[in-house]
Amino acid sequence: MCMKLGKNRKSGGIAFCREIKPFTGVLLGLSAPAAVLLLWYTAGERGWINQAILPGLSKTIKVAGNLITDGTLWSNLAASISRVIKGFAVGAVLGVVIGTFMGLSKVFHSILQTLVGLLRPIPMVAWIPLFILWIGIDDGFKVTLIALGTFWAVLLNTIHGIRSVDPKLLEVSTALEKDRLTVIGKIILPSALPAILTGVRIGMGTAWSCVVAAEMIAASKGIGYMIMFAREMAQPAKLMVGVFTIGVIGLLIDTLILKLQKKLIRW
């Protein structure tokens, strides 16, 4: 992780930052959340905060326990995850395919460029009323919204990845008389892979924010719905459990994608 000049610190070289052991890294990474939790706990126990609007840590954990044991959290989470998987899969596949064509063909790129430029800046939430109108309030509109959100991130990064292939490598394949299909499959796509995976990672983040937003507006199940329902019922602890669940799941997925990235891109 560290930029190094010469040898490492121990042997007297110059390093811009200190290397740390993996275990120490995990420990350090946990230290800041632990501090926040400790502060939260103390504030709750000492009565520094108004528990009616900001419940303390012990109360929140108790409520979380209840939500887990009675199955509420799981069933809502499962509904959200299934929507994310569907929408993300559609959006990512379309993003890679259309992005590849746009990256490879100047004509195709010119045709779609303005349309993409026009539609992409529209915030995902702005689509919600329209999608409800067109598709209805069922899963269909949520999945569509997630697909669209994922699509933009994957599309832009795929185009970028395809276009930034090293022309020197392309020249090598020209000299070796390789046909276009081989060049695309063996050179252009592999060299675009890191960028595509970055798009996938960003797209996954968008997918999560889309599902929560959609569920907060129209749903009878899902994490977003759970948050909204808790708000209406004035259950701040449940609300917080909902919000932090999104954070935890987000972190897990991001770690997973990073692991995948490391495995796929060894160069």
Partner: peptide, 19 residues
């Protein structure tokens, strides 16, 4: 008219495929 595999070319940079 076009490159041929019967004429090999070696550039200054190795130009290997990193993956």
């Amino acid at each position: 008219a076009a490159p041929s595999v019967k004429t090999g070319i070696i550039f200054q940079e190795a130009r290997l495929f990193p993956w």
